[in-house]
Simulated assay, not measured.
Amino acid sequence: MKDIIASDVAKKMVEKQPVHIIDVREVDEVAQGKIPGAVHIPLGLLEFRMHELDKSVEYTMVCRSGGRSGMAAQLLESHGYKVVNMTGGMIAWKGDIE
């Protein structure tokens, strides 16, 4: 599984590089703010919603600290998806939130 740090994700966004973020936190956590443009799919529902994702796209997985997103990345990777885990999660995120 590949990792990326939060500042590198922010840099990609500033440079208008394609970044497809999936936030796997729970509803109450996301209500406090998420990375702009991130798609919210709680970890517990990911297995049932992975059919909505495109295997040709690389997804950046995000949670609060990096643990759940790591599990999500492993799950998707085992099903043939391209994924990268944002280490440090939203705790490490210094960019904008919506």
Rank of each mutant, 00 (worst) to 15 (best):
M1W: 09
M1V: 12
K2N: 07
K2M: 04
D3P: 12
A6R: 08
A6Q: 12
A6W: 07
S7M: 12
V9A: 00
A10T: 04
A10Y: 04
K11I: 03
K11P: 00
K12T: 05
K12V: 05
M13G: 04
V14L: 14
E15A: 07
E15T: 06
Q17I: 01
Q17P: 10
Q17K: 08
P18T: 03
P18H: 01
H20G: 03
H20S: 09
I22L: 05
V27F: 15
V27L: 14
V27K: 15
V27Y: 14
E29V: 13
V30K: 02
A31F: 04
Q32P: 00
Q32T: 09
Q32G: 01
G33F: 01
G33K: 06
K34Q: 06
K34T: 10
I35C: 03
I35K: 00
I35L: 05
P36N: 00
G37Y: 00
G37S: 00
G37R: 00
A38N: 03
A38D: 00
V39A: 07
H40D: 04
I41H: 01
I41E: 02
I41A: 03
I41V: 11
P42A: 02
P42F: 00
P42L: 00
P42S: 02
P42H: 02
L43E: 08
G44A: 13
G44C: 08
G44F: 11
L45D: 10
L46T: 01
L46I: 02
L46D: 01
E47R: 14
E47P: 08
E47H: 04
F48L: 09
F48V: 08
F48C: 02
F48G: 02
F48Y: 06
R49Y: 02
M50C: 06
M50S: 04
H51W: 12
H51A: 12
E52F: 03
L53G: 10
L53Y: 12
D54T: 12
D54K: 15
D54E: 11
D54F: 14
K55G: 00
V57C: 11
Y59D: 01
Y59L: 06
V62S: 05
V62K: 08
V62W: 09
R64T: 07
S65E: 15
S65A: 15
S65V: 15
G67C: 15
G67F: 15
R68C: 13
R68A: 10
S69R: 12
S69C: 14
M71Y: 05
M71R: 13
A72F: 12
A73K: 10
A73G: 07
A73E: 04
L75T: 03
L75R: 05
L75A: 04
L76Y: 00
L76K: 04
E77C: 07
E77A: 12
G80E: 03
Y81F: 15
K82V: 07
K82D: 01
K82Y: 06
K82L: 08
K82A: 06
V83W: 13
V83S: 11
V83P: 13
V84P: 14
V84D: 06
M86C: 12
T87A: 14
T87R: 14
G88L: 08
G89Q: 08
M90H: 10
M90D: 11
M90A: 07
A92I: 13
A92K: 08
W93H: 11
W93G: 09
K94L: 11
K94R: 14
G95S: 10
G95C: 07
G95Q: 06
D96A: 12
D96Q: 09
I97L: 14
I97T: 13
E98G: 07
